[in-house]
Amino acid sequence: MKSLSVSKAVTALMLAGLVLLPLYSQLSGNIFILTLFTRVIILALAAASLNLIMGFGGMMSFGHAAYLGIGGYAVGMLAQEGVGSGFIQFPVALAASAIYALVIGALSLRTRGVYFIMITLAFAQMAYYVASGLARYGGDDGLTVYKRSDFSGLIDLSNRTQFYYLCLACLFGVIFLIWRIVNSRFGLVVQGLRSNEQRMQAIGFPAKRYQLVCFVISGTMCGLAGALLANNTDFVSPAVMYWTRSGDLMVMVILGGMGTLFGPVMGAVVFLLLEEFLSQITEYWALIMGPLLLLIVLFGRGGIMGVLGRAGRG
């Protein structure tokens, strides 16, 4: 039980830090840190959604950034067309992501293993090219969102602190949902399919249907992250869907610990802070980041959560 307590303590510390961050930002007058962490939280949300299919479902999607773009473009395009209400923008963003996930999932899930990794990658690239071709909505240059989603006075997204807490609430909500899913009958079936698909099918579960539903849920969650991200940067461009973005999300999940509830959050925090820190030291931060990833893969099995677990045990 001691092994659990170390990772639990670190997780609790991190979550407390995230909750109290705006207070620190206000006291120290450091506005930058609040903006930085808003981004961290949004990407943590995306990583958590990826973890649902990758860590628990065993579906290695290499095209998860597509949902960031779809969610973002839903907000941006509606804003451009004069529909500023968040009550319309957000549901549309979620629905669009869900529909995309349904189509892509139905096609991709026919394959497995590396084929699955590559077909999800290819579809995300396809979405990237579609967005680049949207001349009305900025094409390659992207689309500026002049006005953030309007929730008619309920919550003001232009207020940094309020927006931060909205993102944090979304993150907690999604993690709670994932926790409920993973421990439900549905979640157990999906995890069973990860371990042994043939056996689960022999018992009589329609494997693909379960996996597809899980895939759609994950995509919808990531679409939410996309809608938030567009509001955070006031901008959305095809670049958010570029395949290196999907790679970043995968790195966050694996860095934090696949198949753990808070691992992806930890991974996102560490990855983005490391990126920020290294880019302040040197312009060539990727020169360090790249080999670091290699070392993490070679020596850091189970990610940060795994290492913490071992530290507690050893």
Binding site: I117, G247, A286
Partner: peptide, 14 residues
């Protein structure tokens, strides 16, 4: 395979 993807992704950055 996931380890491959991640490690070689790091190599691309490098």
């Amino acid at each position: 395979h996931l380890d491959h993807v991640l490690a070689t992704f790091g190599l691309i950055l490098f």
